[in-house]
Design a binder for these strands. Structure first.
Lengths: 309, 309
DNA sequence: ATAGATCCATACATGGGATGTATCGATGGA
DNA sequence: TCCATCGATACATCCCATGTATGGATCTAT
């Protein structure tokens, strides 16, 4: 059985006539009769009752008609999906992300991308920066959303999604909570909430370097992996923390966020997209296009004079 | 594009090799390569990355693979449905029924039939006896479940589903409610709930004949179409009624049912299946087989000495 | 009632395409 | 460096889908 026969079957069923169906199919009537007869022979049941004034579907034909239409639609879908996938408008996209992205970046990107390319299935995996970069390198992931600055291995490129600066998070009852801005040196004697070096290594490294440049050695009493966890510990009054300013818009009354005065120019953090420089799939390129077109989120970053990366 | 090409595409995708796929398809490798190449040309995108150690699906191929499998399954479904429909195991069955059937017969039959032949869609229509018989005659209905005795037109046969006898329904507070059985003559002066002649003509005629044979002329004060309605009127104390004994098992405390003493042998009522003697569809025959095999419902009919029709 | 129109089936010829055989070229492993 | 493996190419063959011509059955109209 072939699709051609199914088209012919549907045409005859809809036209209720071999002659008119043949006309619609741009073919002569006799070969159409032969083709339908062969189809019937193959299935083993007759699909039409032949009358002198046209044909009518048998019960078997009636039962098979819908399935035949569905089969033809599915065949069109094969072509459509293949063509769309070649343009990156269908298929599968495996994206890894760091925990920080779940907070704001990931839902925004997914919503924007899925609206534009609904036929692309997104498979999402959470992991740490290092593992994400490895997965992009060996092809297990098409894209990764990770913390920068980070050292990208050869063959992996980075595209900035969103840049940000550090700010200070203080408990609302902290003596310095009323100040408009703070220098890091003023916090030299405070208890700090830091980042777990292994699992939030980018933030850990950036914070350490920032403190080094400010000439302080922070006394770290607690460590968190997620920024939200760190802020939660600050809210509990356990200490102060250095956090990405973007997080300032989502927090409780128990915490205040203050810009860092005299922030060194190089201490910029952000979220980037990692993608294979070569072997990038079409869908991944579409995703990057969406990211590029998306307006950046308006956090505190711009208020505090966000430098360009 | 043809189903053969889709099978070949799926085979190559699953085997990840042209040679092995060709073997599975019982064909030589070169024509398989040519066929896939033609498919790719037609779609306009390449489906495989050819390597020296086999082939791998491209993103487009990956996206199209599932649709291709679904298309092939649907093609099988076409054959399967046609064959099953020819045996009456799939397709559509239009069945008409009288209101009395909704009460017990219809749900039992539908459940039994649908369990055995789940691929047959049942379309159900309620109508009166006369209209049902016309619809069976002109083919609008494949089967009809109706009240007997009835005069079937030429070309329509009847198959008994369930036979029953009349019994007396009395309000529970009626003076004669305590009697074990009643003769119709004893009710000569009672107010009767009857049946609307036009819309419950079989019951009306059977009741009329029964009273005629008993030598009484019932004083009918109310009329109902549905037996349940008539019983409801009896429950309200508006009179007594002659109803099919099968209904005795489903009623309230306000009504009692008593056998009719000296019931004439010919006064048997029932529910039958009407079907076209010729031009009966296979599915209709399957339905009648199910009906024949189904055990009869155990109502009061047997207790009062149900005669055979 | 009969002639014509309509519609599907049959018979036969033809051309395109699916398949097979033989062979080549490329790639990876020993 | 040689060999094995795998897919691509070239060419021949045969099947089958299609077209043309025609027959047979049924319905309609005069």
């Amino acid at each position: 059985m072939e699709l051609r026969q199914l088209s012919q079957f549907v045409a005859v069923a809809e036209m209720q006539s071999f002659s008119r169906a043949a006309e619609r199919l741009s073919m002569a009537q006799p070969p159409l009769s032969v083709a339908i007869r062969k189809l019937e022979d193959e299935i083993g049941v007759s699909l039409f009752d032949r009358g002198a004034r046209g044909v009518r579907l048998t019960d078997a034909g009636e039962a098979a008609l819908e399935a035949a239409r569905k089969c033809l639609r599915e065949a069109d879908e094969v072509v459509s999906l293949a063509r769309m996938a070649a343009k990156g408008e269908a298929g599968l996209l495996r994206i890894g992300f760091v925990g920080s992205a779940t907070f704001d970046v990931l839902p925004r990107l997914i919503e924007a991308f899925s609206e534009r390319y609904p036929k692309v299935r997104l498979d999402l995996f959470e992991a740490a920066n290092l593992e994400l970069l490895q997965s992009v390198t060996n092809g297990r992931l098409h894209l990764a959303i990770l913390r920068v600055p980070t050292a990208a291995p050869a063959g992996v490129s980075l595209q900035l999604i969103e840049q940000d600066v550090f700010c200070i998070a203080l408990p609302a009852r902290h003596p310095m909570a009323g100040r408009e801005s703070l220098a890091l040196a003023e916090l030299a004697d405070e208890a700090f909430i830091g980042y777990v070096p292994g699992r939030a290594s980018t933030l850990h490294a950036a914070m350490t370097q920032l403190c080094l440049q400010a000439g302080i050695m922070p006394r770290i009493t607690q460590e968190g992996v997620q920024v939200q966890t760190v802020i939660g510990l600050v809210a509990s009054g356990l200490g102060v923390a250095i956090v990405p300013a973007i997080h300032s818009q989502y927090s409780s009354r128990r915490v205040v966020f203050r810009p860092i005065r005299d922030l060194p120019a190089g201490s910029v953090i952000g979220i980037s997209l990692a993608y294979p420089t070569t072997r990038e799939t079409a869908a991944a390129r579409r995703f990057r296009e969406i990211v590029r077109a998306l307006p950046p989120d308006s956090g505190m970053g711009e208020e505090v004079g966000l430098p360009r990366l």
